[in-house]
Amino acid sequence: MPTEVALLESHALRVERMGRVDALDKVKSLVMLPDGIHVRTDDVARYFEVSTASVRRLTDRHQQELTDNGMRVLRGDDLRSFHGDMLSLWEGEVPESYPQAATQLRLYTRRTVLDVAMLLRDSDIARCVRTYLLDAEEDLRASIASLDQRVTRVEGCLVGVGSALQELGPVLSRMSHRLDVLDRKLDVTHQVVGAISLRLTDVSQDIVRLDARMDDFARHLKDLSRRGHS
Rank of each mutant, 00 (worst) to 15 (best):
E91F: 10
E49M: 07
G76W: 01
D78T: 01
T109A: 05
D68C: 13
D122F: 09
D77V: 11
A117E: 10
Y108M: 10
L58V: 02
E91R: 11
D42L: 06
D42C: 01
T103C: 08
D60S: 13
P95K: 09
V39N: 08
N69T: 00
G84K: 14
G76V: 07
P34Y: 13
H38N: 14
S88M: 11
R40S: 12
F82L: 06
T112P: 00
A53R: 15
L58N: 02
D43T: 05
V116F: 01
R57K: 12
L119Q: 09
E93T: 12
G92V: 09
G84T: 12
W90I: 12
E93K: 15
T112M: 07
D68S: 13
V44P: 08
V50W: 05
T52F: 00
R56A: 01
S97K: 09
G36C: 12
Q100C: 06
D77F: 03
V50I: 08
A117N: 04
T112G: 05
D77Q: 14
G76H: 06
Q64L: 15
S54P: 00
G70R: 06
Q63K: 15
E65Q: 11
A102N: 01
R80G: 01
E49W: 00
H62M: 15
S51Y: 09
Y47N: 07
D85K: 15
R75E: 10
S88G: 10
H62W: 14
V94S: 00
S54R: 14
T109W: 08
R121S: 06
A45L: 08
L58I: 02
R61M: 10
S51Q: 13
E91H: 10
A45E: 11
S97F: 06
S88F: 01
T41E: 03
L33W: 08
T112S: 15
Q64I: 14
R121T: 05
E93V: 15
L105F: 03
V116H: 03
P95A: 06
R121H: 12
D78K: 15
E49G: 08
R40Y: 00
V113F: 07
V73K: 04
V55R: 01
Y98H: 05
V55M: 05
G92T: 04
D42A: 09
R56I: 00
E96S: 05
R121C: 02
S123V: 02
D42G: 00
Y47T: 07
L120Q: 04
R111I: 07
S54L: 09
E91G: 00
I37D: 04
R111C: 11
G92S: 09
G92Y: 06
D42F: 04
Q100Y: 05
E91W: 05
L74H: 02
D115Y: 14
M86D: 05
L58T: 00
A102F: 07
V116A: 03
Q64A: 15
L105N: 02
D122Y: 04
Y98L: 09
E93L: 13
F48N: 05
R46W: 04
Y98N: 08
H83A: 01
P99T: 06
R110Q: 13
V55A: 09
E91D: 10
Q100G: 00
G92M: 14
R75H: 13
L107V: 04
H62L: 15
P34K: 14
Q100W: 03
F48K: 12
Y108I: 11
V39A: 14
Y47W: 11
V113H: 08
V94F: 03
R61H: 07
S81Y: 03
R57Q: 11
G36R: 13
T59R: 14
D68Y: 07
V113A: 05
